[in-house]
Each structure stands twice: as structure tokens, then as C-alpha cells.
Write a protein that binds this DNA or RNA. Sequence first.
RNA 1: CGGGGCGUAGCUCAGCCCGGUAGAGCGCUGCCUUCGGGAGGCAGAGGCCGGAGGUUCGAAUCCUCUCGCCCCGACCA
Length: 436
Amino acid sequence: MRLSRYFLPVLKETPGEAQVVSHQLMLRAGMIRQTAAGIYAWLPLGLRVLRKIEQIVREEQDNAGAVELLMPTIQSAELWKQSGRYDAYGPEMLRITDRHDREMLFSPTAEELFTTIFANGVKSYRDLPRILYQIQWKFRDEIRPRFGVMRGREFLMKDAYSFDPDLAAARHSYNRMFIAYLRTFARMGLHAIPMRADTGPIGGDLSHEFIVLAPTGESDVFYHSNWEAARDTTVDADDAAALQAYVDRLNTDYAATDEKRDAGLEAEAGAALKQSRGIEVGQIFYFGTKYSAAMGLSVQGADGTAIVPHMGSYGIGVSRLMGAIVEASHDKDGIVWPEAVAPYKVALINLRADDAGCTAAADALYDRLSAAGVEVLYDDRDERGGAKFATADLIGVPWQVVIGPKGVAAGTVEVKRRGAGTKDEMSVEAAVAKLT
RNA sequence: CGGGGCGUAGCUCAGCCCGGUAGAGCGCUGCCUUCGGGAGGCAGAGGCCGGAGGUUCGAAUCCUCUCGCCCCGACCA
């Protein structure tokens, strides 16, 4: 993409509305704009990162055996009355009336709809187990939205729902999501710690929150120092016993949110007990037959009797993850994207757009990299070098390739690593080899 | 919903207390000089001072109401 034809409204100064660094940088980098409290427009650069995060989430859900579908954002109140949550959910649910005075709502989550749709499509125990998921916009009318996309009212969420014949099978589904979540966050360069959590209004008795440690997080969290090291996620998720052993082993190290603290276990951890603030990027629940019973989901078992499936639900805040990643990965000059979620892999900087030699060299390299499938943002604007460097640093693209008159004369380009700040002069051939 | 703060140019803000022709820096447009880390000069464009009432000869400024945004708390799959 040529920057001269892109839409990248970067800000030199920090807007007053933003208080946390991720919000400030996402506004400055031209990724998002706020349109109302807790509601954001996603600009081209922000949308690209959102899509990258979404795709990683999708791939790991698919790897876990989950099946993607898409539910509507606007739902009828009927199903919610059936489960009892139409009244229970409270003012956080955005209620809408259509032209016929029918009660509608903007979905804050989708247990009822998934359960109902699933119930209509299955009849036999042979249809179990299944895990279905979607990546869809949600709306929760938060009392006080804040921190940019980390606590918005409208947000992109991956929500998955598992259906199993019994508790043991449901636990395996839960564990599949548990390991899938660890893998998902690790791929984004995030170290997320699973913590025993409150189940909240969703019900059930088994739940973990996945927390990324950050001083600006909203939750107080407590954990054993063993959690500070990254965890190996090598385990065969199809082997229920091996997976259960893996999960059990991880859970021997204490980690809990404020609501689930255990004085005894904390005393056991002793000096290894750490306290921090954290950002919740995902949560998983097992809640038995709460919704399957309420929504009339049952299948026929092998012996002819009815089976009410055990369910779980599993959420990842896709748009919130972007804020969490920026919180975890930035410096004084701007964002430092992990390569897996970077909007572009390479920022190609033509230092002298007014110099025919530089422009010819930059155009040629842009064409070569693009042809090789490398995602390049080519700064071909007629700006001074300093402004281009500042923009490239701000938007945090992992690799910067600088083409200037000195290099063109010497037949070299400069390749800079955004995170480490290291710069290397090399031939065009070497640069192409390095970046493809 | 309680408490606090802020709405003035695209952005960051000054002006308001103490009423009297709407400002600065950055950004933007044009020309010139410059060109390896947000350059310099000159000339410009750009504002219903969030909105509605009121007080006054006169309101960005004082009063009332209202809308919006931010922060703290409560709240929070």
C-alpha cells in the first residue's frame, strides 16, 4: 500500500480524551476514532490489526475442533425471556423496540440463541460433542466505558459454546478451550495467566479468566511467581487424560482474581505470591445444563432415554486484545507490534521522494516485496525523512526499510528492527531475502 | 447512579474570575530555501466559543436549563 493513497490520520499530539497509553497510541496512530462513549470507528490501520487478531483466534478455535458460524447482533426478546435473563441481565442490555413495538435487543452474549439453534439441528447423542463459535460484535451498555477499546460498549468478541453428553466430556471440551486460549494469546506475544474466577451471572461452577498482567488493568490479581515464565503448550488435546493432567499441573500454581482469593493457598505460596493488576482477555465457563434445560435442548441417548447436554461457554475479547497488546508492547516513540498481529510487515521509507534515483529504487523494492506477498506500507509521500521515521515508529510496523541517497549510491538499503532499534546496511538482495 | 472536571480553529490549549472587534503553537494551502529522526522564511485559509433561554447598550466571559465527553467510586463473562 502506498501511503500517499492510504487513509492514515496520525496525530502529533495526544488527544485529551485518552488516559491510558494504549488508547492514546491507537488514536495517534490513526487506528480508531471514538464516535460516542465506548463506541469506536475502526480506521484502516486499526481494522487490519483487528483482522489479524481475529484470524489467530479463528485458527486456534478451528484447531480445537470448534466450528464457526455467525449469529445476528439484533435478537428477539423472546428467547431471553425463556431463559429468564431478559429481566436478570439488567440495564447493561441495550433494548430496542421495532416499528411494531416488538421487544428486541442488541446481543451482549449468545447462550440462548446458540442453544436454540443447536437444539433445532440435533436429535441423537451421536450429534455430540460439538463446539460452535462466532466472532461477532457485541453490545453491553456499560455504566462507565473507559480505556478506549479495552472497555468499550460495542466490542468484537469470539464466543464459543460446547455441547457434551455428560460432565466428563464437558470437562474435556473445557480443557480444549483452556489450552486453545493459552496458544492463542501466546501467538500474539501475550503472556496470559489462567486464574480461577467467579462465574458471575452466567452461572456454573468452573471458570477461568485469562489475565494479561498490566499496571493499567482493571482487575487485582494474585499469582505464584512460577507464572511469570511462559508455559509450554505442547500436549495432545485429543487425549482427554493427558490434557486433564496438563491442565491440573498448571493449576497447581496459585493464580486467582480478587473474588476468588484463597488465604490458605496464598500462605502456601509464601514469598512466591505476587500481586498485580491485569487485563482480562478471555474467560471460560462450564455451567452444566443451565441453558440446555431452559431452552429445551435434549437428544436421545444410546439406551433411548433423553440426554440434556452439558454446556460451557468461552469468550475472547478480540477488540480488547488489541488494547492489551499495545499496553504490553510499546515505547516512547509508539507501538511495537508483535509480527503476528502487525498491520504491515514492512514500512518502506523513501527518504527523498524528490530524488529520481531514490524513488526508482524504492518503487522497485516495493514492487518486488509486494510480488513476493510481503505486506508493505510504502511511505512515498513528499515529506521529510524525520516525519516518515516518526510515523513509522508510531504505527509500530516490525521492519523498516530506508532508502536514501547514500544507500542508493552505495547500492544498499537500511533495514531497521522496530522493537530492538537495530539498523543494518545491506544490499537490496539481502534485504529481499531477509524479508521474504 | 453518587462525587469531581471539561466542551473555544483539524489537534493541544490560552482567554472566562474582573462583560467591550476571538488568540497562540502545531497541522492545513501556496511560493521559496532546505532535505538521514516530526526543518526555516514569506503569504494565506480556517471558529454560531457544544446547544437553548435569560441578564445587559453589549455575553466565549454572568445566570438558568440542556446535550456531550473525561476522571474517581459503585458496577462488570
